[in-house]
Design a protein around this nucleic acid. Structure first.
Lengths: 363, 363
DNA sequence: CAATATTTGGCAACCGGTTGACAAAAGGTG
DNA sequence: CACCTTTTGTCAACCGGTTGCCAAATATTG
C-alpha cells in the first residue's frame, strides 16, 4: 500500500483576499467539530442579502450576474476572507482543477525539470499539479495512474513503463499526455534525440574515436531504444563501430557496475542512456586509474542538475525537459477546454553540451 | 497567483480491488456529464441488499457491523471495483487523509530526503503527502501554508522562512510540525548540529588549520544562525579563529560568488551552510588554480545527493534529513490521533562524513 | 403603452459520502 | 416466558458547493 503520490494545489480564482496574521480575526462560522472553519457561500449570501446560488454564480460564472450584485458579493467575500472549498466544488462537478504527473522516481533529477516546467505552466493557468511516483515498476505505475485518474482532471505520464494498451485505456477515460515516449492515438511530447546524438557522435568521430559503446537504460524505457537507434544510425553514418551494453539500473551505481563491461568492449567513447550512468561510470573508471577524456570519452544524456559537479564536467546531450513538461501541460489544458489533441507527437530539439568529459583520444 | 504546490495521494483503505485492463469492464453507473464514473456506496448497497449507511460503516468503521454483512458488503465492493470518492468523504468530515509539506525549493536536493522520508512514512499509514514550494519567499510561504492548511489534516514546514508568530498562528488552526527550526510551542524536529560540527572542526584542527571561515546561508534561515554558533563555539574550543562570510544565495552559484571573499579572508578551511555552496565554492577555487584540499579544505553541510560527484568528493556534515521527515510525519499523525505533541524539540544526530575535500594543509 | 425578448435571481435537487438518533433484532438473565 | 441489555441496520440530515428550470424584473420594440 505504499504508492507515494504528491500533489500540487490550485488557487482561489475569485475575489481578492487579504491574509491577516492569524487569518481568524473574523471567524464567520464555527463548526461543531472543533476547528474553526472558513466562510461559505451561505455566509456570503446572508451578508450580501442574496441567494447562495447567486453567490456561486458570481464567483464562478463570469457575466451571469449583474455588475452591481457581483460587486456586492465580491465585497462580502473579501470581508469574510472567503475561500472556496475545493472538495465541495469537486463533488458535484468532478472538476478538481488538478492535473496528475507520474514519474518513475522522485529522487531522479531527470524529472526535476519536467516537474518544474509542468508546475509552472499549470499554476499559471490555476491548475494544481499532483505528482506520483511509480518506483520504476510498471505495476505500481498503473495502480498509481488509475488511482490518480479519479482525482485529477488530466494525467501526464513521464517516461511511462507500462504497456501502450494500458496507457490507451487510461486515455480513454480522461485526457492523458505522455512525455518521453510515442504512442499512437495518445498525445505525446518527445525530445527528438537525433540532432543531439548526431552532434555527439560527429564530435567524437572528429576527435579520433573509432569504437563507441552505448550503455542502455531500463528495458521498459521506450527512450532507451530510441537512443540506441540514434547512436547506431549516427555511428554508421560517421563510420564508427557501436556496441550496446546493458546496465542493471539507470543510476550512479548502475554506471559503476557497467565500467568493467565498457573496458572489455574496447570502446574509447561511451554514450550513456542518462547522466547518472555517465557519472557512475566516470567515477569507476577514474578510480581504476583511467583518465577522462584522455583515454576515454564519456557523454551523458539529459544534462541534469549536477552534471557539472564532476571533474571533468560531463559532456551530455541536453533534453529540454522543462519544455517537455510545459508542452504536456499545455496540451492537456487545451484538451480540457475542448481543443483537439495534436495528431502527431510534439518534438522538441536536443543539443550537445560539450564540457570536459569528452575530447581527443590521447594514446 | 503562481504558488506551486504538489501533493501525494493516499490509498483506498477498504476492500481489495482488482484492476482489470480498462477498469471499465463493469461500469456500474454512468453519469450524465460524459465520463463514466465509478461505483458508489449506493450501488454497493443495492447489490448487497442493505442501506447505504451500512455500507459506509462496513467500509470505514471496523466492528460496527456484523461479520456476516461485512463480508457481503466487501464482496459487493470488490465486484463493483469500488473506490471511495475522496472528495465526498472529505466534505462532511473535513478529514482528507492528507498532510502538507512546504519546502523552499523543489529543485534543491536538500529537501529530497525530507520529502522521501515524509512520503514513505505517510503512505505507510495511508496518508498522502501534499508538497508545496515557497520559492524561498516568506510571503509566498505564508500564502501557500494558509491555502494548503484548508486542504490537509496537518502541515509540515521544512526550513520555514516565515516568522515564529505566523507559524504559531498556523499551528493554532491545525497540527503543524517544523523541521530545521525551533519554535517554542510548536513541535519541531531539528538536527543537532553540534556533534557533527565539532567533529568537523576537530578534524580540521588536527590537520593543521588555524583560520576557519563559515559561509552563511539565507538570513531568514534559522539554521544558518545555529550552524554559525556551532562553528564559533567549536572553533573557540579548538583554538581556531573563525570568521563568518555571507553568501548571496544558498546555491552553487552563490558558492562561486563567495570564493573571492573566502580567499581574502585568509582562511585555510571553510565550512559552508550547505553542500551546494561548498560545491560552487570548490569549483571556483579550483578554476582559480587552487588545490583542494592541499591548499584549502572545504566542508559542506547536509550530504545531499551528488555531494560525491565532485572531485575530490565533498567532506560534509550529514544531516539525517530522511529521518527528520519521518519523525515529523510521525509526530503529526500521532497528534491527529489525539496524542500530545512533544514538549521539547526532537533532536536527531549529525555526523561528519569525511571524503576528499578536507585534509592536511600543505603549504 | 402594451407586448415581447432578455437578464437576473431564487428554488430545489444533486454530487457521494458520514453520523446521531432510533427502532428492530438478537442475546442474556431471573 | 417476560424483561432488560446489547448489537445491528435504517432513517434522515448534513457537508458546501453547482446547475437546470422557472419566475420576477428589466430592457427592447412596435
Amino acid at each position: 500500500m505504499a504508492t507515494g503520490l504528491f500533489c500540487c494545489h490550485a488557487v482561489y480564482d475569485g475575489a481578492v483576499t487579504d491574509l491577516t496574521s492569524t487569518g481568524a480575526a473574523t471567524t464567520p462560522t464555527k463548526r461543531g467539530r472543533g476547528e474553526k472553519s472558513s466562510a461559505t457561500i451561505y455566509d456570503i449570501a446572508k451578508l450580501a442579502g442574496v441567494n447562495p446560488s447567486t453567490v456561486s454564480r458570481a464567483l464562478s460564472k463570469p457575466g451571469r450576474v449583474s455588475a452591481k450584485t457581483q460587486k456586492i458579493i465580491e465585497d462580502a467575500a473579501a470581508e469574510l476572507n472567503y475561500q472556496v472549498n475545493p472538495f465541495a466544488r469537486a463533488l458535484p462537478t468532478g472538476r478538481t482543477q488538478t492535473i496528475g504527473l507520474i514519474v518513475a522516481d522522485i529522487t531522479n533529477p531527470t524529472f526535476f525539470d519536467i516537474i518544474r516546467g509542468a508546475e509552472t505552466t499549470g499554476s499559471a493557468r490555476d491548475y494544481t499539479l499532483v505528482l506520483a511516483e511509480s518506483a520504476e515498476s510498471p505495476e505500481t505505475e498503473v495502480t498509481a495512474a488509475r488511482r490518480l485518474l479519479s482525482t485529477v482532471d488530466g494525467l501526464i505520464l513521464a517516461s511511462p513503463r507500462m504497456d501502450d494498451d494500458q496507457i490507451r485505456a487510461l486515455a480513454a477515460d480522461k485526457p492523458v499526455a505522455v512525455i518521453n515516449r510515442e504512442i499512437s492515438g495518445v498525445p505525446c511530447v518527445v525530445p527528438d534525440v537525433n540532432k543531439g546524438i548526431s552532434e555527439a557522435v560527429r564530435s567524437l568521430a572528429a576527435n579520433g574515436h573509432e569504437k563507441l559503446a552505448y550503455v542502455a537504460g531500463p528495458a521498459r524505457s521506450w527512450m532507451t531504444g530510441r537512443r540506441w537507434e540514434g547512436v547506431k544510425a549516427a555511428a554508421e553514418w560517421s563510420k564508427l563501430s557501436a556496441v550496446r551494453l546493458e546496465s542493471s539500473k539507470p543510476t550512479v551505481d548502475g554506471g559503476r557496475q557497467v565500467a568493467r563491461d565498457v573496458l572489455e568492449s574496447g570502446a574509447t567513447a561511451v554514450i550513456t542512456y542518462n547522466d547518472l550512468l555517465a557519472i557512475g561510470l566516470m567515477q569507476e573508471l577514474q578510480a581504476g586509474g583511467m583518465s577522462v577524456p584522455d583515454q576515454i570519452s564519456i557523454v551523458g544524456f539529459d544534462d541534469i542538475f549536477g552534471a557539472d559537479f564532476t571533474t571533468p564536467a560531463l559532456t551530455t546531450v541536453r533534453s529540454p525537459l522543462g519544455e517537455c513538461g510545459t508542452r504536456a501541460v499545455t496540451i492537456l489544458l487545451d484538451m480540457l477546454q475542448g481543443h483537439e489533441a495534436p495528431g502527431e507527437a510534439v518534438r522538441v530539439e536536443t543539443e550537445l553540451v560539450v564540457r570536459g568529459s569528452s575530447g581527443r583520444l590521447l594514446a
